[in-house]
Write a protein that binds this DNA or RNA. Structure first.
Lengths: 153, 153
DNA sequence: ATGAGTGCAAAGTGTTTGCAACTAT
DNA sequence: ATAGTTGCAAACACTTTGCACTCAT
């Protein structure tokens, strides 16, 4: 999507079109990765200088409200943001506590868990909203003795 | 367990016995709830005055290393700590993002998920380490319209 | 005696907020 | 014109760290 399209999209949602907003959308849309607010701030700076951190936070909050962006809380460290694909089902996230990588996982994986929680506790699970933690294949084999792995993320 | 027992336990683990440590152990053992470091600080203050925050943090870190205490990262807000029962299997946690309550859940619930992640990605899941989020029964029914529920925890 | 543990103050993240200036409509 | 947005600075919540002093052993 080009810059013009973000403007159109925002207008359709009755939002004001500003350089900061377009830049944030552009940045978030530019990658499949999960970006922290900090990373977004610095990437936005490459597109539009002098966009303030606070503005990025406020903009992200707004975009989440509008359903354009999703955020995931990681067990350690900053919240990450990524574009939310319209029809697509929200995926679930697992974080490697050794290397910090986030892996996207099939949301169906937690369906049984969600059902079990719903029937036993009446609890409605939002599987996409928080990441689970563990150790990825690379880190598990790499540092055979699990030295750094216990480093607590 | 009385104060004397904490001293004994610490000695068995080759740790120095100090009032601060015993108090932290006492506090963590005094409840089934998941306490934040802050809550522990203030409860410790009732037992032993003038124990500094930093000491509580350092002590908790140590107790986790020793395997006496477990900590759980919540999707939002502070890390919580609770006593770790020796033989007992670590439980899994779900957080209500409306009221903030943490529910303990049968760890077996995630066994299938853990297996699936292991075989598909080689990922080793630490199910107890991070809480999942959702909405508890009370909050789901209470605020029918889900007003506050979207408040993002 | 001596090294581990502690209090304190200070810094470090990540995020939010009040307010005055600005700008998209 | 005017309501919504922004930049700034300051505050916030949670946690860590360097250092000198104290205490358990």
């Amino acid at each position: 999507m080009g810059a013009e399209d973000w403007a159109t999209l925002l207008r359709e949602l009755d939002q004001k079109v500003t350089p900061a907003r377009c830049a944030v959308l552009e940045v978030v849309a530019s990658t499949d990765a999960h970006l922290s607010a900090d990373e977004i701030v610095s990437r936005v700076a490459d597109l539009v200088p002098d966009v303030h951190r606070a503005t990025v936070f406020r903009t992200l909050e707004r975009l989440v409200e509008l359903g354009l962006v999703a955020h995931v809380h990681l067990p350690h460290g900053a919240t990450t943001y990524h574009l939310r694909q319209p029809g697509e089902r929200m995926h679930l996230h697992v974080l490697c506590r050794a290397c910090g990588d986030v892996f996207d996982v099939d949301p169906a994986l937690l369906d049984d868990v969600a059902d079990a929680l719903a029937s036993s506790l009446g609890f409605r699970l939002a599987a996409d909203h928080a990441a689970l933690s563990g150790v990825c294949a690379v880190c598990a084999s790499g540092s055979a003795g699990d030295v750094d792995v216990e480093r607590e993320l």
